[in-house]
Design a protein around this nucleic acid. Sequence first.
DNA 1: CACTTGACCTGTCCGC
DNA 2: TGCGGACAGGTCAAGT
Length: 292
Amino acid sequence: MPELPEVETVRAGLDELIRSKKIKEVKLYDSPKSWPNDVVSTDKFVKDSSILKVRRRAKLLLIDLSSNYTIAVHLKMTGQLVFVGEESRFGAGHPTDSLIHNLPDKSTRVELKFDDNDSLFFNDQRKFGWMKLVPTPEVDNLDFMKKVGPEPLDDSFTLEVFKERLARRKKSNIKAVLLDQTVLAGLGNIYADESMWAAKINPKLRVNEIPDQKIVKLYESIREILAFSIQAGGSTNKNYVNAKGERGKYLDFANVYAREGLPCKRCGEPIAKFKHAGRGTHVCLNCQEVEL
DNA sequence: CACTTGACCTGTCCGC
DNA sequence: TGCGGACAGGTCAAGT
């Protein structure tokens, strides 16, 4: 999925598109057997309630309902939340770069139907994602919410906070640490690689092997890159789309992710890709001083 | 304990 | 064209 900028883009789009709409019906397209996650069913706390607002914490979307319940949605790798309204159904104003043409499709798991006949589709090709219904006051008590690290774009996320979080994992590999949601919320494979390139950090180093001045640069880079990507509507590599079914444009500006073999934008050496911390990892061997 | 690996699924792409 | 294997943006549980 979707990392922080993608989830935030979906959140902002959804909040605008579905806020105050009333849910008329919840339709499940997948049998519980093939999708054993905890699903929103035609529960009385969903049907006939209205959308109050759409929130985000880390990579989790929280759709607050007037019933005082919240639909929590995790998109994982391939989840999509796509709104289909009057305009997209009948062509006028249909986004030109929409990747979504006809819904429901093969990957549709859940449809929320609103009383004005607009719909919100939850699609998920790989079925890793989930939706669950939680009483709104209990959202903050979810294990996930208690464990997850700070929001990197919050004002309260200072350089000192970042250093504190990293200090918990001094001997660990920096890439694994950046991907660890309990250290810091929201980074995934794309933005971890992009941030380390910006700070000229070798992803193979342990946290305590990185000079302080590069940690400072990493802190700034993470915030700048995430903010920039939100402006660009996130990254679409394969599946990701926003709430209107449109692609994100961040990868047009990416420095390393999905650029294997292309020249580094700083030094011109070709970008390399290798497996590290269990993930495809993109670096400039020269700028980041990486030995394969 | 802390870190690494495999599993969850489906689709796509690459090499033979 | 067909088939097997590797890989894909995330997160757990299980194993070392």
